[in-house]
Write a protein that binds this DNA or RNA. Sequence first.
DNA 1: ATGGGTGCAAAGGATTTGCAACATT
DNA 2: AATGTTGCAAATCCTTTGCACCCAT
Lengths: 142, 142
Amino acid sequence: MLPKEKEAYKRLEDSGLRPSVQRLIIMDYLLSHHTHSTVDEVHKDLGRKFPTLSKTTVYNTLRLFSECKAAQMITIDEHRVCYDGVTVPHAHFYCRRCGRIIDMDGICMPQLPIGESVGGNTVDEVQLYYKGICAKCSATKE
Amino acid sequence: MLPKEKEAYKRLEDSGLRPSVQRLIIMDYLLSHHTHSTVDEVHKDLGRKFPTLSKTTVYNTLRLFSECKAAQMITIDEHRVCYDGVTVPHAHFYCRRCGRIIDMDGICMPQLPIGESVGGNTVDEVQLYYKGICAKCSATKE
DNA sequence: ATGGGTGCAAAGGATTTGCAACATT
DNA sequence: AATGTTGCAAATCCTTTGCACCCAT
């Protein structure tokens, strides 16, 4: 059994998505790896256990998840779209040197007006992105 | 003379960039149009007055601007990179229906720890993105 | 003359789409 | 059977790069 299979199943159910095998293993992956994975990473990693999983399906499934709010799409970096299984709003930090995306749990998000109207605009999502050099890279010489 | 030519010149100078004709007209465009333009929009729009301006140059120049912090790159939408001549941090709203990016001047940014260390990570940029349906689109039926 | 800047054409990559095969109800 | 899902291959689109020419110092 997959590590977070129960949780993955419930997440799909709650989002109104049918729990196909592919959707379950991809959701399970997101819930087990809080590394803000790219499509490529998910595909490569899962590909070892499930060699028939196609990249197209990973693309389409992750996009589907984000459209259904079953996962969060992160576009902090112009070149890479990443996905996060944690759907509660939280700040992210992008390291320009190593490219990692790190959760900034200590930082509180601005009071989130989700579902409310701000200046007439109805908000349904908030993203707070920080960029710079991460602690690990700062400790390393150039 | 271009509307914001003086300001454009100064911005380039302050950023350590040589004020070529192309850089001046592109920077002038950014300073005159607070519409969060894409490369394509800048190129199409300026192309009417300056037909020899190449898209490559617009690409390279806008990227250069953002690297030198002479402009701000906005990656709120997975499919489009936009640029903003306003470099002071401010929140943006992305309308899922019309695709526009709107300034949220009323919203205060979270206290910005730029240049400071947050949990060991050194921050040099902050982006706050809201997504939803804008006022204009809300007023229109589907 | 030298170094940087520009623009064409081509290359490179990431993502999406058409469609036939497949699975599930 | 009917409907939704998957995966291959191809298409598409955005962005970058190589390189020769040009401009300004």
